[in-house]
Simulated scan of single mutants.
Amino acid sequence: MPSPTRQQLLLAALKLFAENGIHAVSLRSINQAAGARNSGAVHYHFDSKLGLLSALVDDLMQRIVQYRGDALERLSARHTPPTVEDCLDAFFRPLWLLHFDPEVGNVATKFFLQLHITPIPEIQRQMAERGQVSWQQVEALLLRALPHKRRAQLRLHIGMGWISVLNGLAALDLMAVTPLGDMRTGSLEEMMPAFMAYLVAGISA
């Protein structure tokens, strides 16, 4: 069972990294935000800032795996080609569910976005390795759904879709004040289908 202090440090670090950026956050500020009595708590549990970032990525990627379940495998087992919408829903829905996760909330997607803005080679490799299977699965599924699509173009669109989802989720609050008014619904059931339709149209082109 994970140590309560370790989990408090992870959650405190996640929020600070998401809101302030990776390099602007000190280990001391994480210890303070987590309410750790030992000033060396981060070093004790994670060895270093890089170790803490790695543990955060592992934790969040595991949540994504749990949310996705076997959705991609079930689509792969179909005798008929899946629809583009089915493929993208199975691949991207976990990011939406992570964004609305009661424990990590919207700071999880903001943290992932920060990692893209300020890339750290070791963490980039870790994320690529952890996501490789699901990315290969959705690529194979979309090639079945879109047999006319060139693989190189499809891969580019998958990557652009990933960045679009992260940006869209991280910036949902920006939709509160627009020339068309408050465009937030606050409902996963209403917002996700609209965004998925946007992605489907782009990848199907």
Rank of each mutant, 00 (worst) to 15 (best):
P94M: 01
L95G: 00
G161T: 02
Q153T: 14
L56A: 01
G35S: 13
D58F: 00
I117S: 12
P2E: 13
T83G: 07
G202Q: 13
F112I: 10
A71F: 02
V138Y: 01
I22G: 08
G21Q: 09
G181T: 06
D182L: 00
S29E: 14
Q7S: 13
S3E: 10
A197R: 15
W162I: 14
L154T: 01
R150N: 13
F195D: 04
H148R: 14
E122W: 07
N106P: 10
L154H: 01
F46C: 04
V165L: 04
F111D: 04
D173M: 08
V57T: 04
A13V: 05
L16T: 05
Y198V: 06
E122Q: 14
W135L: 13
L11G: 10
D173R: 13
A128S: 15
P4M: 08
A12F: 02
D70M: 00
V57I: 07
Q62M: 04
A34K: 03
L143T: 03
F46P: 00
L98D: 01
I30M: 06
P179V: 06
N38D: 15
P147F: 02
T80H: 11
H23N: 11
A71L: 05
L75H: 00
I30T: 04
V177W: 05
H157E: 15
G40D: 07
A145W: 00
V138H: 00
Q136I: 05
P102H: 06
R150H: 14
I158D: 01
S48V: 03
L52N: 02
D86V: 08
F111K: 08
D182T: 04
L10E: 11
